[in-house]
Simulated scan of single mutants.
Amino acid sequence: RIILTLLLLGFLSWIVLKSMYYPELFRSIDTKHLLVKKLIETSPNKQTSDDKFVIQIEKLQKYMETEEPYLDSSLTIHKLANQLNLPFKDISILINHHIGKHFFDFINEYRIKKAIALLENPLNEKLTILEILYDVGFNSKSPFNTAFKKHTGFTPTQYRKNIL
């Protein structure tokens, strides 16, 4: 038992040490990334990079409005980056530092705008709040209500009653 326990303890210690010294083995993490703040500050031509980000913001907003990727309830920043053919890091910097929002707040803003349009349309009067939240890309009622109230100041039910 002692030998088996020592072997097991040695093996577990080896795994822990390997994961500490080589995290990319286990999580595909590139430990050589620079901090975003340093990337933005050390940009060689700040004016050119600012123009690049303005163009990318316009591209992102146009894509969000025309293609409506936010309707996919499993949308991630990686999927959005692939759809836009932009590096994941650029999308992250764009949304977090230049638009000033977290990814899910950015996506939820578009979802709530779509939900408001559905609630205000008299043809959708028979749609339930649950159907609307699934239609706009939310998976459950609680996050939908929270995001809706944050954006409008009302719950979806209160909002619907106010517009009728």
Results as ranks from 00 to 15, higher is better:
residue 4 L to P: 12
residue 5 T to W: 15
residue 7 L to C: 08
residue 10 G to V: 14
residue 18 K to D: 05
residue 24 E to G: 07
residue 33 H to C: 12
residue 35 L to P: 05
residue 36 V to Y: 01
residue 36 V to R: 01
residue 45 N to I: 12
residue 46 K to R: 06
residue 47 Q to H: 07
residue 51 D to N: 08
residue 51 D to G: 04
residue 52 K to P: 02
residue 52 K to E: 12
residue 52 K to I: 12
residue 53 F to D: 03
residue 59 K to D: 07
residue 60 L to K: 00
residue 61 Q to W: 13
residue 62 K to N: 09
residue 63 Y to W: 13
residue 65 E to Y: 13
residue 66 T to L: 14
residue 68 E to N: 06
residue 69 P to D: 01
residue 70 Y to N: 01
residue 74 S to F: 12
residue 77 I to S: 07
residue 78 H to C: 11
residue 81 A to I: 13
residue 83 Q to R: 14
residue 84 L to C: 04
residue 85 N to D: 11
residue 86 L to F: 12
residue 87 P to W: 04
residue 89 K to F: 10
residue 91 I to R: 00
residue 93 I to R: 01
residue 93 I to Y: 01
residue 93 I to D: 02
residue 95 I to S: 00
residue 96 N to C: 15
residue 99 I to C: 14
residue 99 I to D: 06
residue 99 I to R: 04
residue 99 I to W: 13
residue 102 H to Q: 15
residue 104 F to C: 14
residue 105 D to E: 13
residue 110 Y to D: 07
residue 118 L to N: 00
residue 123 L to K: 05
residue 126 K to L: 15
residue 128 T to G: 06
residue 129 I to H: 02
residue 144 F to N: 00
residue 145 N to Y: 09
residue 145 N to S: 09
residue 146 T to H: 14
residue 147 A to S: 12
residue 147 A to T: 04
residue 151 H to K: 10
residue 153 G to V: 01
residue 153 G to Q: 04
residue 155 T to V: 11
residue 158 Q to Y: 06
residue 159 Y to N: 03
residue 159 Y to Q: 04
residue 160 R to F: 08
residue 160 R to C: 04
residue 163 I to W: 08
residue 164 L to N: 08
